[in-house]
Amino acid sequence: MTQETSSAADPVLAGFRASIDNIDAALIHMLAERFRITKAVGEYKATTNLPASDPGREERQITRLRALAQDANLDPDFGEKFIRFVIDEVIRHHERAKNG
């Protein structure tokens, strides 16, 4: 019996998995929107001669995400790793577009 067959035979497991699938889809859409906004921020900074990065803001965001993670009973290290990953991806994407 495959895993998919076993979950189809178990409605409780199938319900959990459907919820996970919905959450994953929402996360992807939210990340896409976040990246759309950060792209707009980058374009705005370029046209107004503002520095591309803001290390102070990044540190405040890391602190904020760690606190949010802790409040949500999630490992604060995970919250920090997540926002650092997002920041790094924004920078990587910006550099690729700039050098494109």
Rank of each mutant, 00 (worst) to 15 (best):
M1R: 06
E4I: 14
S7T: 11
S7M: 03
A9D: 04
A9I: 05
P11Y: 05
V12I: 13
V12M: 01
V12Q: 06
L13Q: 02
L13K: 10
L13A: 15
A14C: 03
A14L: 13
A18F: 12
S19Q: 12
I20Q: 06
D21C: 04
I23C: 00
I23M: 08
D24Q: 09
A25K: 11
L27T: 03
I28V: 15
H29K: 15
H29W: 08
L31K: 10
L31R: 02
E33Q: 10
R34G: 02
F35M: 05
V41S: 01
G42C: 14
Y44S: 06
K45F: 03
A46W: 08
T47Y: 00
L50H: 13
P51Y: 06
A52L: 09
A52P: 09
D54Q: 13
G56A: 15
G56L: 14
G56W: 13
R57N: 12
Q61L: 12
Q61D: 06
I62E: 00
L65I: 04
R66M: 10
A67G: 13
A69P: 02
A69D: 07
Q70D: 04
Q70P: 05
D75L: 01
P76Y: 02
F78P: 00
F78Y: 15
K81V: 13
F82A: 15
F82D: 12
R84M: 04
R84F: 05
F85P: 01
F85Q: 04
I87V: 08
I87H: 00
D88H: 01
R92S: 14
H93G: 07
H93I: 10
H93E: 05
E95Y: 02
R96T: 07
A97C: 10
